Amino acid sequence: MNTPDGPPAGIRRRLRRPVALAQALIARRTVRLAPEPPGERRGVVAPDGTASPAGAGRERGAGEPLRLAAVGDSLVAGSGVDAQDQALVPRVARKVAARTGRDVEWATHARLGATMRRVRYRFLPQVDGADLLFVCAGSNDLMARRSLEEWTEDLDAVLDGAVRRGRHVVACSAGQLYRSPALMATLRSVLREWTDTQTEASAAICARRGVPFVDVAHCDLNEGFWAADGFHPSAAGYEMAADMVAAAMVDALAADAPDPVV
């Protein structure tokens, strides 16, 4: 029986899904996603922000730099900005270098449209011996309607491999597609539910493994967060996310520091 306000909530959710799927098909035809920006996908940044080609940290006699590797989707690839040096990973590298006083040698392994499965089989095998390994994907899994079981299987496998390839692993949630101004209302509403479910599962998997998890799916967004495509972060959006990711990495590195002598 319908309530005075319409069908029960469970029925309303089921009725929304066909509409959301139709809107997702429309979005695929009409939303013009920002491409991956040009520029080098690896380099070295000094604590003062000076950027150099990969390998330059050793050449300058600054000692072994911290090695930062990132694997993931378009958030790692930098879609939404004009050049790679404005993207998320170089920003994180600059912040980690400034806060630790060490050179950071960074590299990205990512593609627009990548799911966690692609990270598992394509990008993660390209990484070895990282001091910091950043894992960031999930939005494309949501848009592709991959099941929670598929998601957890792939994330488990990626983290299994990541802890063998990186001294410290930091994982990140999907972004906030449910707030994307490029998507229609019903699709955003359904994406919010799916994002909540995926984020909860990811946080639990990371907690069991002791992997720091950065939830960018539920934080407040700063002014000017969205790029021109209404789907990816702008430079301001990446700067906001970089603060959160870098803080988690610096905290992880601090655990390596010896206890002070008293």
Rank of each mutant, 00 (worst) to 15 (best):
M143G: 09
Q126P: 04
V44N: 04
E149H: 13
S180R: 10
C219G: 13
Q198M: 13
V71T: 06
R111C: 06
D156N: 12
G101L: 05
A257T: 15
Q176I: 00
V158N: 00
G63Q: 09
A252Q: 11
M240A: 11
G10D: 15
E150Q: 13
V135G: 00
G175F: 10
A162G: 11
C219S: 14
P47K: 11
E149C: 00
S147N: 05
F225P: 02
D82R: 15
A27R: 06
E193I: 05
G55N: 05
A162S: 08
T199A: 11
P125C: 00
A70I: 02
S180I: 01
R12I: 05
Q176R: 05
G55P: 03
Q126F: 01
E239C: 06
T199Q: 10
R167L: 11
L15I: 08
A27I: 08
S79R: 02
E149F: 03
F134Y: 13
A227G: 07
C136I: 01
E36P: 01
A46D: 10
A201R: 15
L253G: 02
A144K: 12
M184W: 07
F134N: 03
F134W: 09
Y178T: 08
S139N: 14
T186I: 15
L124R: 09
G61E: 10
V127D: 12
A204L: 15
A255E: 14
Y178C: 04
A257I: 08
V96L: 07
G6R: 07
T108E: 06
G113C: 13
A201W: 10
A255F: 00
A83Q: 11
G10Q: 15
A20D: 06
T50W: 01
A227F: 01
F231K: 01
Q198G: 03
T108N: 01
G43H: 05
D196A: 12
R146S: 06
V76W: 02
V262I: 05
G10Y: 11
D160I: 04
S173W: 13
S180L: 03
V170C: 06
E36T: 15
E239T: 09
R41Y: 06
E223Y: 00
R67Q: 08
R60H: 13
D5K: 04
V214Q: 10
L21N: 09
R165D: 13
T195F: 04
L155E: 03
V190W: 10
L183G: 10
R60M: 14
R146P: 02
P65Y: 05
Q176W: 08
T115A: 13
D85Y: 07
R188F: 02
P7Y: 05
I11P: 00
S234I: 00
D220S: 10
V158P: 03
G43R: 02
R58E: 14
V216K: 04
D131W: 09
S202G: 12
D5M: 03
V92Y: 09
G230D: 00
A137D: 09
W106G: 07
E153P: 00
W151G: 01
V135C: 02
L191A: 03
P90L: 14
S139P: 14
M184K: 13
P212E: 02
D141I: 08
R67E: 11
P7G: 04
E36A: 15
P37K: 11
L155H: 08
L253M: 07
G80L: 05
R167K: 15
V119Q: 14
E40Q: 14
M184L: 15
H232W: 02
